[in-house]
Write a protein that binds this DNA or RNA. Structure first.
Lengths: 224, 224
DNA sequence: CCCGCTCGGAGAGTGTCACTATCCAAGCAT
DNA sequence: ATGCTTGGATAGTGACACTCTCCGAGCGGG
């Protein structure tokens, strides 16, 4: 198909597609004549993935290029490509390592890994983001010790089982890599939305928000 | 304290603090003379919260103003303030409601709420974000039916219990509101980081990424 | 062959956002 | 008194994700 059709089928303007082509987010089409190119179903799929990463996953364009570059890099084996791809996904901006909150946060994270039985010698690309988040919580005097974080870690471990099951159920190895990236990124808003909805629901359950009850005196939680 | 000291103690430049004051993210200090103002510990705490929301929580400045405005609005009761505050937190940009993927996603979400026992007559502010995310997954032909989402919903419900326990443990009602906002936002990166780390860990456990074993044949997990 | 059209490519421009730099007048400190 | 700091206002910056405009090359009907 021509660029115009690719645009129509994807709902992305031709100008934006050209921009993605320029930025290397989308491989160039097959040149039909000196001035025209042909795009296939693969391009359409990739374009939709790019859109999803950028719009829903809020992945910056430059990052998306890195991630997709790793996915496509046939010189590496699957494990490496997956590692590079998900490792390139957006992270928290790291903080001043001299801040005592940061080093305390780092220790907390170490301790958490220990409790979870995850090897702390292994460097997790997401680990720094976690350190930043914990340091921020600490700075605000909110609970963020190992005991507070542990339930989140355990739930994350359960999530990972669901996630990898889902990815394993995807067809070919090539699309499995794409699936790993897509599901890592696209289930994040799912998870966060569900958490917020669950907050509302749990809050309603505890405090009967819907009209009765005294909001100034939070009721004793029904069950600790 | 003066603006300069507020800056020093928070690590935020005076220019940025002035910007926040202008934008209404920070209440003005108490005017000491015609040209000088005094800031207290509350300002410092609020400033740190603002920084955390913006930098770690990636909340846009305008949104942070809305959220904090609701937190501070003493004309409303706690429930309303909390609802408005967390409801104002960033959401996915909504999509074309005519897209069949979106309506299908909406049905999936309805079904999910049913399975979870959450009242679907209640409008969850995060619901639209969830619809957008599910529609995107659907567009890419990735699994996003009720059965796939259910485990995430159940885990979110568990998270909510932890979260509300934590918030309930915070002192006064006023700071409890701030805490609700802060913990909602700041535990999001914690959760996402942990999920990514858990992916790495579960993947290692399944496929023995670290050199030995055949990646095509998942190894039996050593220990659940 | 001609002529209007579309196509793909490239560079510059746009709008938004979160600051940040510059000015300025009014004090406070010495 | 005077130099320096303070707080307020205005304009500028850099990053980002597009989006606009232009261009020459073709393709297709007459």
């Amino acid at each position: 198909m021509r660029l115009a059709e690719l645009s129509e089928r994807s709902g992305v303007s031709t100008a934006t597609i050209k921009y993605y082509l320029r930025e290397g987010l989308l491989p160039p089409g097959e040149r039909i004549t000196a001035t025209q190119s042909e795009y296939g179903e693969d391009h359409l799929r990739r374009l939709r993935l790019v859109r999803a990463l950028i719009q829903v996953g809020r992945v910056p364009v430059a990052t998306a290029r890195e991630v997709l570059g790793a996915v496509d890099d046939t010189a590496l084996d699957m494990d490496e490509r997956l590692g590079i791809a998900v490792g390139s996904l957006p992270h928290q901006t790291p903080e001043d390592p001299d801040d005592p909150n940061v080093s305390a946060a780092r220790e907390t994270v170490e301790g958490l890994l220990g409790e979870l039985g995850w090897p702390s010698d292994r460097s997790y690309p997401a680990g720094e983001s976690l350190v930043t988040a914990v340091a921020t919580l600490r700075r605000l005097d909110y609970p963020c010790d190992v005991a507070s974080l542990l339930p989140y870690g355990r739930l994350a471990a359960e999530l990972a089982v669901s996630d990898l099951d889902m990815i394993a159920a995807i067809g070919t190895p090539v699309t499995q890599l794409e699936a790993a990236v897509a599901l890592t990124v696209l289930y994040e808003p799912v998870l966060l939305s569900l958490r917020r909805m669950a907050h509302a629901e749990e809050s309603r359950r505890r405090y009967s928000t819907t009209g009765d009850g005294d909001p100034d005196v939070p009721a004793e939680p029904a069950d600790g």
